[in-house]
Design a protein around this nucleic acid. Structure first.
Lengths: 338, 338
DNA sequence: ACGATCACTGTAACCGCTTACATACGGAAT
DNA sequence: ATTCCGTATGTAAGCGGTTACAGTGATCGT
């Protein structure tokens, strides 16, 4: 019943006995108005419960205090944690995060970016560097600030905050090799339009070639981001002549799927099969045996990305890329052989 | 370099040789304009790459085609999946989801709601029913449509889409009792301002009382939503005189923490200790043994909530609450005793 | 042939806020 | 006292859409 329209700046002005300009100034540059006037205005504001109209502000300023992010999926924990960090930082700066997801599909991603741009976001946060040139062009046409996360800028000039996926995967593969494994297979994420997955494959390949081993159709499986896909991949690998003694996975979820399938195949981990993951999500620590994986500093990545976005937005140049170090987390799923 | 300002409706009008009103009509009520004119305008629009200014639209219509949601946390999968579904449905209807998180803190939640309201969201989606009256009042003052999820409206008149947490927990407890357990403990989520957690405790208590058993300080632990907290809770329970043979957990994450801690304590699940969860997140199926838990139809809940929100928004009344059924998922972590 | 009716389209007011510019005022310098 | 200047405030023109209302032809009935 009580649906009276919300107060506007004019109502505040009238009540405080000043002009709308003064009210606006109280809100946007408080020092420009005398302390006495200001307290008058502030009283009126709180009595009326006034709050500026978002659309009107966006129109007048051509600025929304919103940054948009497109992540591959909300359903899995990897991005959620990083984004949570981004959000924390942004909200300290009075900026809101508008979140969309693409389902790992570059076309969907482009569509979502378009939507975000229509809503006038002040900046864009995207995962990884691999996407069609047309997508980048669309963003550049509006010269929107953009920051890429989870990558280190190997193939793009856009500012990046992330880590070296390739080096991290190489380290993990070396670790597995150091444990005496020779028949090593990899279950990777889908590498098409996913540079994180692709770099991880390259990293593993680097280390294996250096040891005189090959990673090829015979011992490499790509699988979408799910437990089931990981399981299928393992079954495929195990149906080949040279069964691996270790499986390096492109992420923890695939590794969990692999471990589950191994159990179903009657293989015990790590006695019959060593398994490693990537990301170090919570899941990794509750598996039995616990998963050997690569720890990625999600939260620091998120904070830094947010900071960088705010910087760029406020005019200062994008500055250098930020590349974090990753750490190997050695747990029970990896065993020495030979 | 190419930072020319985006085209406005006037540019389109000029190019198509019509007035801005006609362009606007082409966009908003296409039937009101002659087909020939329309194609002229549409051509101009696509040549210029015109896209309406969000803020201007919001100002003129006093409507943002945005609905806001506040969830306790993005970091865990339960809400992510439901929200993903909400988003899918909304985006089909041309509406965007603006997401915020409260960290399970009612004060934070209120703050986030305020922020969303300032941004002019057309509706609100909240988790659960328990929150300070002042929060509800704030929303009602602006007569904003609101839908609650994950609950069944026991304590509120607001429209709800969810399930009966109490009944589901009761079913689970009965199942455990039917397996012969007598010394049963519960590790619940924090129940303050969290009706889901509270109802689940009540449900377990219902079933136990009916069996002549008590759930009290001696065999009930509350723990925040994390593996570690679940582990701590189990250690507490196990340090008491009457060690339980089964632990019913308020959610899967706590259950995973309990199972991990059990392992560390040298207890094997389910031989020494049965464990059950709630939510049936992916995690439940990769645990070893797999977790007996309650399946909740997250996706359908999300879809339905989105539909209801759109309905209310478009004027039709809120209609009845929707209550989904839950299912017990029986897996290896629960064993018969006695 | 003429007015009535209908289907489109144009004009311009308005949505609520910001801000360039004009104005008013008080005090310091002359 | 007059001029000048800086500070605080007011006035009003946008920002880019939507839409009530007015206007314009074309069509139709008589």
């Amino acid at each position: 019943m009580n649906e009276r329209r919300p107060p506007k700046i004019e109502d505040v002005a009238r009540r405080a006995g000043v002009s709308t300009a003064t009210v606006s100034r109280c809100l946007n540059s408080p020092d420009a108005v005398r302390a006495k006037t200001r307290s008058l205005v502030e009283a009126a504001i709180s009595e009326l419960g006034y709050t500026p109209h978002f659309g009107a502000r966006a129109l007048a300023l051509n600025r929304t205090y919103t940054i948009g992010a497109v992540i591959p999926t909300m359903e899995n924990a990897i991005f959620a944690r990083g984004l949570q960090a981004v959000q924390e930082r942004l909200s300290e700066a009075g900026t809101t995060l508008l979140l969309a997801s693409s389902g790992y599909d570059p076309e969907q991603e482009s569509k979502q970016i378009r939507t975000l741009m229509q809503r006038g976001v002040d900046g864009l946060l995207l995962i990884g560097e691999a996407r069609p040139a047309s997508t980048y062009e669309m963003v550049e046409a509006r010269s929107l600030p953009i920051v890429l996360v989870w990558c280190n800028g190997e193939t793009t000039a856009h500012p990046c905050v992330g880590f070296d996926n390739r080096a991290a995967a190489r380290d993990m593969a070396r670790l597995v090799l150091d444990h005496g494994h020779q028949r090593i297979a990899m279950v990777a994420g889908i590498t098409a339009w996913n540079d994180r997955a692709a770099r991880r494959v390259e990293g593993v390949r680097d280390a294996m070639s250096a040891a005189g081993l090959a990673l090829d159709d015979g011992n490499l499986e790509e699988a979408e981001y799910s437990l089931e896909a990981g399981g299928r991949a393992l079954r495929n690998l195990m149906s080949r002549p040279a069964k691996p003694t270790a499986v390096i996975c492109g992420n923890d979820v695939l590794a969990a799927g692999v471990m589950k399938a191994a159990r179903e195949l009657g293989l015990s981990v790590p006695e019959d099969l060593s398994v490693t993951g990537f990301d170090n999500i919570e899941l990794a620590s509750v598996l039995d045996p616990a998963l050997t994986t690569v720890h990625v500093p999600h939260r620091r990545m998120g904070w830094t990305a947010a900071d960088k976005l705010l910087e760029i937005q406020s005019g200062s140049g994008p500055g250098a890329n930020t590349t974090f170090n990753t750490d190997l987390v050695v747990r029970g799923s990896l065993k020495r052989v030979g």
